[in-house]
Design a protein around this nucleic acid. Structure first.
Length: 433
RNA sequence: GCAGGGAUUGGGGAGCGGUCAAACCCAGCAGACUGUAAAUCUGCCGCCUUGUGCUUCGUAGGUUCGAAUCCUACUCCCUGCACCA
């Protein structure tokens, strides 16, 4: 473990703007003691996404300051679904879906947390371990008795659903999450839970349940605590990732390192420093010059580049970053014509590409618009034509003038490759066999 | 169950017998300008073999030369009332 820029995590998190709220006494405990903190991750999708970045980084920061992080896979809670922040009832996933999703998420978590550390190694625990064993009657008697429906109904997450309806299943969710905290407290000595602000209510339920079950500690203070992170929005007030229609996945097959790099590279000046603080390991001395850079020479986009590089490296490792850089250089600086065949293939590794028959090219039976639709670069022939008319389609490095133009052998790079482009950043590779 | 109201192209929301592929706003896409930014401006934004073409306005029928617009049935949603408690 390297030495950290602050004397304790709390100062670190606060400076980064990553701490939104904490239960009374939580800060002192973290500063003066070593804690164990858990954060839940929902296995309703088979990949984490950038919305999970902040909790992930915070767990990792805790670990670097000597605390013990626990990542909880919601294999049990995922079967029910958290009503927080939802306007409608969820579809229940099957057990198999939840478990295969969990496996994939486990791999991603390992990018952030050190499970092999000699001191305070991270742990990964699936709450299915206990939740799926629950006996309904026991649960009602031991846990349910501690919850007041009167209070539960007042919750925003419940109130928001009073109109549209909420099932008993989702209504009960809060009890399960509180029970998780209790289990972790008893089994793992876990005394902290973290989460987004939307989790505040759920976290307090757990804190409360532990108090009811175990009472205060010997100094009369609560045994369990919670810390929550702010909801990250851009300067327009939109949730991170909304601008591209949903939070980018951390799975490189769903969202390539290049796209992640570009996503952060395109960050607004107004947001970039805030994001660097939240999502990277850079320390104040490293960030300060970047702040100056944004102010004095914004055109150079130094801060955006630093952000993109750091995050890509954290999420996809050094090789992912290298790939993102290579593709970026080629797309934004170079001409495809100058790249070697293997460089081109490299560039599009894992990216959208299709294969066509050589004879179709030789016989000139393939038109640009057909190719554009086949590669899903255009949604329809009409879309392809319109975009061409507006000057938004390119083949290799040249603009396409006629949507019906044939693809000829002259269009082939290295005899077997064609690069199609729409606008500035949509690219497709065509392999000719 | 009874009585009202409503379902329109990604979202919101006009249209209420022809001039409707359907106003307008948002989102999205392309272009210009820039800094791969923001703002702004321009164009596009159902499908195709671009045509007095085709398929759309909850579903199925019907009336009309002609329907998103009228009628009937059905489905779903909302609002009252009732029933059950």
């Amino acid at each position: 473990m390297t030495s950290q820029p602050f004397s304790n995590v709390i100062d670190d998190l606060k400076w980064r703007g990553a701490l939104s709220n904490a239960t009374p006494g939580a800060e002192d405990l973290i500063i003066n003691d070593k804690i164990t903190c858990y954060n839940g991750f929902d296995p309703t999708s088979d990949s984490l996404h950038i919305g999970n970045l902040l909790p992930l980084m915070c767990l990792a920061r805790l670990q670097r300051y000597g605390h013990t992080p626990i990542a909880i896979l919601g294999g049990g809670t995922g079967m029910i679904g958290d009503p927080s922040g939802r306007s409608d009832e969820r579809n229940l996933l099957t057990l198999e879906e939840i478990d295969t999703n969990g496996e994939k998420i486990r791999v991603q978590l390992e990018q952030f947390l050190d499970f092999e550390a000699k001191s305070s190694p991270a742990k990964l625990i699936n709450n299915a371990d206990w939740l799926r064993q629950i006996n309904y009657l026991d649960f009602l008697r031991d846990i349910g008795k501690n919850f007041s429906v009167n209070n539960m109904i007042k919750r925003d997450s419940v109130q928001n659903r009073m109109e549209g309806g909420i099932s008993y299943t989702e209504f009960s969710y809060a009890l399960l999450q509180a029970y998780d905290f209790l289990m972790l407290y008893e089994r793992e000595n876990c005394n902290f839970q973290s989460g987004g602000t939307d989790q505040w209510g759920n976290i307090l339920d757990g804190v409360d349940l532990i108090r009811r079950k175990h009472g205060p500690d010997k100094n009369g203070l609560p045994r369990a605590h919670g810390i929550v992170f702010p909801l990250i929005t851009d300067s327009k007030g939109d949730k991170l990732g909304k601008s591209i229609g949903g939070a980018p996945a951390l799975d490189p097959n769903k969202f390539s390192p290049y796209r992640l790099y570009q996503f952060f590279f395109n960050t607004d000046d107004a947001d970039v420093i805030r994001y660097i603080k939240l999502f990277t390991w850079l320390c104040p001395e490293e960030i300060e010059p970047l702040e100056d850079a944004v102010r004095e020479r914004p055109g150079k986009r130094e801060a955006q580049q630093a952000l993109a590089e750091q995050v890509t490296k954290i999420v996809h490792g050094e090789s992912g970053l290298q790939q993102a850089r290579r593709v970026t250089r080629a797309f934004f600086r170079g001409e495809f014509d100058t790249l070697s065949a293997s460089e081109l293939e490299d560039l599009f590794e894992g990216a959208a590409s299709i294969e066509v028959e050589k004879c179709d090219i030789d016989n000139r039976v393939l038109s640009f618009e057909e190719l554009a639709v086949a590669t899903s670069l255009a949604q329809s022939f009409g879309d392809a034509r319109r975009t061409v008319q507006q000057g938004g389609m390119y083949i290799n490095s040249g603009r396409v003038e006629d949507p019906a133009r044939e693809i000829t052998p002259e269009d082939l790079l290295h005899g077997n490759l064609i690069v199609l482009r729409r606008g500035r950043r949509e690219h497709r590779l065509v392999r000719v066999l």
